[in-house]
Write a protein that binds this DNA or RNA. Structure first.
Lengths: 201, 201
DNA sequence: GCCCGCCCGGGACAAATGTCACCGGTCCAG
DNA sequence: CTGGACCGGTGACATTTGTCCCGGGCGGGC
């Protein structure tokens, strides 16, 4: 019996996947969670063989949870299941020790076969996505530039960002400028967009 | 036998829901589509009793498709199924003649009961969402303000927007200013964010 | 007919933004 | 120990953005 943990915030998706995977005769869903910070505790309780993790989760990110999980429960394979096939996500997933990376666009049948292949020790990654991740290169943004950029989402002013990050407005503008330069964009919004696109956020 | 059409762009979600609904003994999925502009043609072929439509779809929006569907196939009930419970979406769905409005956050079990209730002539709407839709009021943005705002997403400059919408830069700034005023925000990005939030986009 | 809302534009002005040069400090690698 | 990267900050500058004037035109409702 293959024991599965399923982490996904959208209730309907979670329920549907759980039902679906439950139909496989040798699968057993031992835990379902909707928040990232419950992944590790529930995993320690239930000792799954494979953890299916979404990335965008309330609380802890699925990527961070994956890293923690590999620490706490090395026998548990991690399969990332996400809406967005962003190069930086894939890179971070691999660095976090994930065994596979699936996008939700694909057919459902992929899911069960991916679980089995991961359990067999294989790595499951979309070839096109792997190429994109390599061609995009590593994250060029420094931690501070990331902080400032993430604080700049949905139109915060320089003063807002400065307050959020506890920096001088002048410094914030410098970081924004350098981030804009590194992303080869023309303003902060294009920069956050580009950084998001690449999974650098 | 209740015949269903399922429109959803995310392959995994679509497949999972199809399998799930297929388990109900009296349900039959007669069509699955991943693009909005295929909804009406497929519906005309297969004559479903209920159409389950996502809103954000490539091609035609699920809301526009709903309106068209009500025209072409009045006997078919429309059930909107969306990630975002935005007030303006609900309003537009009702205006388009939808019989129900579900958010994907809820449990899967809701889905089948919603389909049955819709078929029984009932309307299925989250009460909290209905209240939000009423309290938010109707869309205050004029068509041009909407155009300019949607062209302003992801950080386009005034010149970019002007080119996209075929307007003078000065006019664009005027529309942006009035949109910012109506949304009670401080800059264009906050305005698009607020407009999005309310489903006014 | 007249008002009103929407459309399209211009000009002027203050504020915000993006860029650049420059400062000092820490810390790490060669 | 020296160069280089990152951090935090300042000041000056040009550009962009947001606001408030103004103008004219079109169409619908009372």
């Amino acid at each position: 019996m293959i024991k599965l943990l399923l982490a996904e915030d959208q209730g309907m998706m979670r329920g549907a996947l759980a039902l679906l995977l439950g139909l496989e005769p040798d699968f057993e869903i031992v835990a379902q969670v909707g928040e990232g910070d419950k992944i590790v505790p529930r995993a320690l309780e239930t000792r799954p063989d494979v953890a299916l993790l979404d990335i965008e989760l309330p609380g802890l990110s699925g990527l961070d949870a994956a890293a923690a999980l590999r620490q706490e429960l090395p026998g548990c394979h991690v399969l990332i299941l996400t809406t967005f096939g962003r190069p930086g996500y894939l890179r971070r997933a691999m660095e976090a020790g994930a065994s596979g990376f699936l996008v939700k666009d694909g057919p459902v049948e992929e899911l069960a076969v991916a679980v089995r292949r991961v359990l067999a020790g294989e790595r499951v990654i979309d070839p096109g996505l792997a190429a994109a991740a390599l061609s995009a290169g590593p994250n060029p943004l420094t931690p501070r530039e990331r902080d400032v950029l993430t604080a700049a989402v949905d139109g915060a002013t320089v003063a807002d960002i400065a307050a959020k990050v506890h920096l001088s407005p002048a410094t914030v503008r410098n970081y924004l400028s350098s981030a804009i330069g590194k992303t080869q964009t023309r303003n902060r919004m294009e920069a956050v967009r580009a950084a998001r696109q690449n999974g650098w956020l």
